[in-house]
Design a protein around this nucleic acid. Structure first.
Lengths: 170, 170
DNA sequence: CCTACCGATCGGTAGG
DNA sequence: CCTACCGATCGGTAGG
C-alpha cells in the first residue's frame, strides 16, 4: 500500500479515502477482467460460426487482453487465490463456467472432425497456457512486433511448429 | 519459516541449525533445477540428431521436470526474482544460455525446412509456456493420465490442434 | 489529504 | 532443539 500510495503521490493512509481495503482493489481487477471474458464467450457461444472460427475468436480475445491489459490480467491470473471466502468462490465459478464453454467449442470441433481427438481439458489448458508468457515482465525486454506475436501464436496453436505440406495456416 | 518448521515438526528458530537463511533454500531449489536443464541441453546440443528429434528430447525434459518435480520447478519459475544480487544474475545467465541453445535448435530446424518460419524467440516462449500449466496446483484437482498429457502436449506443439491429412503425429 | 500510531507477522539471533 | 525476543514491515485506524 505504501508503494501504491507513493505511485499516486500521497501517503498510504490517504488511500483509504478512496478505497475500502487492499482486497477491494484485487476484487475490482479480478472481476472486471473476468467480466470481459464472460461476455465474450457468451457471444461466441451463441454464434453460428464453425468451431475453428469460434476458437480463433477466443484466441484473439486472449491475445488482446494479455497484450493490452497485461498488468491487470497478470494480477487476476496470479492473485485471485488471495480473494477471501465468498468472492473467491464466485471468481472460481466464473472461471469454471468459462472453461466449460471453451471446452464445448473444442468438443464441437472434435465431433465435426476439425480438431484432433485430444483430451479437451488438456487442449484447453495448453492453449491458454501457451499465451500466458505475454503477461510476464521478464519478456518485456525483448522488443517484439505485436502483430508478429499474434500471427505466430495462432499459427502454432492451430498448426504446430512442424512444416506440413497442405497446412492452411502456414 | 514458521510454516516450514511446523511441516518438519520443529520451531522456526531451530531451522537455522540446518540452514543459513531463507534465501539459501531458494538458492538450492533454483540452482539444482537449473543444473538439470543445463546438463540436458548440452547433451542435446552435442548430439547429431535431426532438429525435430532434438526438440522432442527438450520437450520430454520439460514435461518430466514439470510433472515429476512440479513443486521445485514452480518455485524456481516463480521465485527466482527474489534471489539477491550476485545469485540472481548468475541464475539469469544460466537461463539465457539455455534459451539461446534452445533457439539454436529451432533455427537449425527452420533452416532445414523441418520447422515453420516462425520468430524463434516467440516459438521458444510459446513452447515453454504451453507446458507451464502442469506446475499449478489449481489443475491438480482434475485427475489426468500422465501419459495422455505428454502425448497430447507433444501432438499440439508439433502439429497443432487442427486436423491435417498428412500429419505424422496424429 | 496528513501525522501519529496500532497490532500482527516476518526473518532471524542470543543463549542455553 | 527450545524459549524469549529483536527490528522491520505490513494493512489499516483515529483524529484532525
Amino acid at each position: 500500500m505504501r508503494d501504491l500510495a507513493s505511485a499516486v503521490g500521497m501517503e498510504a493512509a490517504s488511500l483509504y479515502n478512496h478505497i475500502k481495503s487492499k482486497e477491494e482493489i484485487l476484487f475490482e481487477i479480478c472481476f472486471s477482467i473476468a467480466d470481459v471474458y464472460t461476455k465474450n464467450i457468451l457471444s461466441v457461444h451463441q454464434s453460428n460460426d464453425v468451431p475453428t472460427k469460434k476458437l480463433e475468436q477466443l484466441i484473439t480475445l486472449h491475445l488482446q487482453i494479455n497484450s493490452n491489459s497485461s498488468s491487470l490480467a497478470s494480477v487476476m491470473n496470479d492473485e485471485w487465490r488471495h480473494l477471501s471466502s465468498p468472492d473467491r468462490k464466485k471468481f472460481l465459478d466464473l472461471r469454471h463456467d468459462y472453461e466449460n464453454k471453451f471446452i464445448e467449442v473444442l468438443n464441437e470441433g472434435i465431433k465435426k472432425g476439425e480438431f484432433k481427438k485430444l483430451n479437451p481439458r488438456i487442449a484447453l489448458f495448453t492453449i491458454l497456457s501457451s499465451m500466458r508468457w505475454l503477461l510476464h515482465w521478464y519478456y518485456a525486454n525483448w522488443e517484439f512486433d505485436d502483430r508478429e506475436i499474434k500471427k505466430d501464436l495462432k499459427n502454432m496453436i492451430f498448426d504446430g511448429i512442424l512444416v506440413h505440406n497442405n497446412s492452411v495456416h502456414v
